[in-house]
């Protein structure tokens, strides 16, 4: 710091504390709401201190649900979200590593063409081509399957680019030394390139897990069987599924459970996540 002004620092802390409060507030409210009895919400504005029904609410929502109010048990939704997020994260990383390896370490006819095919996917988020993509998945009989939930979202230009960028920074001599040491393409990939990419793989995993977990429109479209519902889309069914005012205490318990896993992933892998995020765009 250039100069040391006490008041400036105080002001900065004040701004940040206020900012953090604003950022945390919605989740705080959700946690509080999830600990109250249903009756609380009929008496007008919701309280700001925790209630005593937390345990009960969470048990209800995870194992029993409230099917009459459009709230199936969410234990299975959490599982579906987890499976979908894992399949997307692992799948994206696997196919992106392979294709980045091909693009960087081989010269072959059509290389630029394939690069562009992959690049195109960056430009076409699923939201802008909803109907035809849905039709393809329907024709392949992939509605209401894990494959249908994950495979169409697995192709990722982002991860391919990240790995391509990273591979380009691996010193040329690494490959040359491996060649002198008698490693072929597969050995080089498995023994050297993948171990060198561990940090990037982990960072990508965080980002892609969150991406997969937070999918909303896609599961909404292709699941009609509630045993394949994911939690993020399940919330919406709970909010709009009931005829009357939503059961706020259960909705908020669901919201907390839906938000918790990706938040935990971020907090535990913050360093990797930040690195991965800011480097993808370089």
């Amino acid at each position: 710091m250039v100069e040391n002004d006490r008041w400036g620092m105080l002001l900065a802390h004040l701004v940040l504390i206020l900012g953090v409060a604003v950022v945390v507030f919605p989740v705080y409210v959700a946690i509080i709401a999830s600990t109250h009895a249903p009756g609380t919400f009929l008496q007008g504005v919701m309280p700001l201190l925790p209630g005593s029904h937390g345990w009960e609410n969470y048990r209800t929502i995870i194992f029993e649900g409230r099917s009459n109010a459009g709230a199936p048990p969410i234990g299975s939704m959490l599982w579906n979200s987890f499976v979908m997020a894992m399949m997307i994260a692992v799948g994206k990383i696997a196919i992106s590593l392979l294709s980045a390896f091909a693009i960087v370490y081989f010269r072959f006819p059509g290389r630029i063409f394939f690069f562009w095919i992959i690049f195109v996917t960056l430009m076409l988020p699923v939201e802008v081509r909803i109907v035809p993509t849905y039709q393809v998945v329907a024709n392949l009989h992939m509605l209401n399957t894990y494959a249908g939930l994950s495979i169409p979202l697995i192709a990722s230009a982002t991860a391919t680019f990240l790995f391509r960028q990273f591979f380009m920074t691996v010193p040329e001599e690494m490959l040359e030394a491996a060649r002198v040491d008698g490693a072929g393409p597969w050995k080089f990939f498995k023994d050297i390139l993948v171990p060198l990419s561990v940090t990037n793989i982990a960072a990508m995993f965080v980002i892609m897990f969150i991406y997969g977990w937070n999918q909303y429109l896609w599961p909404l479209l292709i699941t009609t069987d509630d045993s394949y519902y994911t939690i993020v889309m399940g919330i919406q069914r709970m909010v709009t599924g009931a005829d009357s005012e939503p059961l706020w205490h259960l909705v908020m318990a669901t919201v907390v459970l839906a938000a918790l896993p990706p938040i935990l992933v971020i907090l535990f892998m913050q360093r990797l996540f930040v690195k991965g995020l800011t480097e993808t765009e370089k």
Binding site: P171, E173, M174, E176, A177, R179, V180, D181, G182, A183, I192
Partner: peptide, 17 residues
């Protein structure tokens, strides 16, 4: 292939794994 030539190489930046 390099590995079949019965040579060994020391690189400028060492190229250690």
């Amino acid at each position: 292939e390099p590995a079949q030539r019965d040579i060994a190489m020391v690189f400028q930046n060492y190229a250690l794994y």
